[in-house]
């Protein structure tokens, strides 16, 4: 785990899985995934980052397909993948699975979570779920202008400390906060900022026991697998795509760096 941060510019994304997920990986240094609740301005952030003009509509479920774009910053090339907007990663609808599988199996170098500053509590539910499955994330606190109009104040430093990731206030429609966001993505991608993501603790002892029993087994079978507890939890919940990944041994390919031999 620690060795991961030793080589500064070593990307953590999983090239082969990304290619399998349909991402062209030519001339790309870092892969950035954009996640977030519907209607938080995620597509607007995407357009600002990439200079593309994806149609942005003010309704939930607008992005039904994955959009891709890119930019370069500090001599590095970034590929941005816009995931479908979701309220959670726990249900089994197609769009939530797309988003989750991308973060889990594609292992983007940075996952940017776009949140609506005027509805932070509800948006945090997704943020916490994303932080369960990735170590490298940036929270883009969008719609700060609307929050200000509604007299909502957010203590970003405290929020950043709580979540263990950079928090960047922004107003994407006015293009505010975008340079800061790009800089923060660069920090996390290069490993200069080491995230210490918030992980859920408040579980029943019985559940904790079950999770750790299963996680031990998983660790033995798939050495180096990240997010052991999360995978264990999903198995306990009977998540079909994770069950399939265990059955086929696909999960082994997630192990850091080393691909398990194709059998």
């Amino acid at each position: 785990m620690n060795s991961q941060h030793d080589c500064e510019n070593c990307p953590v994304h999983h090239r082969e899985n990304l290619i399998r997920l349909g991402i062209a990986m030519d001339r790309v240094d870092y892969v950035v995934a954009l996640a977030g609740n519907p209607n938080t301005g995620k597509s607007t952030v995407f357009n600002n980052l990439t200079g593309l003009r994806q149609h942005t509509g003010n309704w939930p479920g607008k992005t039904v397909t994955r959009a891709e774009g890119g930019y370069s910053y500090g001599e590095k090339r970034y590929k941005v993948v816009d995931l479908p907007g979701t309220y959670s990663l726990l249900s089994t609808s197609t769009d939530e699975e797309t988003a989750r599988d991308f973060i889990l199996f594609g292992r983007p170098d940075v996952t940017v979570i776009v949140a609506d500053a005027t509805r932070l509590e509800r948006n945090l539910n997704l943020v916490l779920q994303v932080l369960e499955i990735t170590d490298r994330a940036v929270l883009c606190l969008n719609l700060m202008d609307e929050a200000q109009r509604n007299h909502i104040e957010i203590d970003e430093r405290n929020l950043s400390a709580e979540l263990g990731i950079p928090v960047i206030p922004a107003a994407a429609r006015q293009k505010e906060g975008m340079p800061e966001l790009i800089a923060a993505i660069g920090e996390v991608a290069s490993g200069r900022y080491v995230c210490q993501p918030h992980r859920l603790k408040s579980r029943s002892p019985k559940l904790n026991h079950a999770v750790s029993t299963l996680a031990e087994k998983l660790a033995a079978q798939f050495p180096g697998l990240p997010n052991l507890n999360w995978v264990a939890l999903r198995l306990l919940e009977g998540d079909q795509s994770i069950i399939d990944a265990v059955r086929t041994g696909e999960l082994g390919k997630l192990s850091t760096g080393i691909l398990s031999p194709q059998s």
Binding site: L120, E121, N125, L128, H151, I152
Partner: peptide, 26 residues
């Protein structure tokens, strides 16, 4: 239980970091 723990954490963090003043005219 799992979902509740997510909601509980989200609510705790939000309470610590968000402050709303007065009415919400908009």
């Amino acid at each position: 239980t799992v979902i509740e723990s997510i909601y509980a954490d989200a609510s705790r963090i939000a309470r610590k970091t968000v402050r709303t003043e007065g009415e919400k005219p908009a």
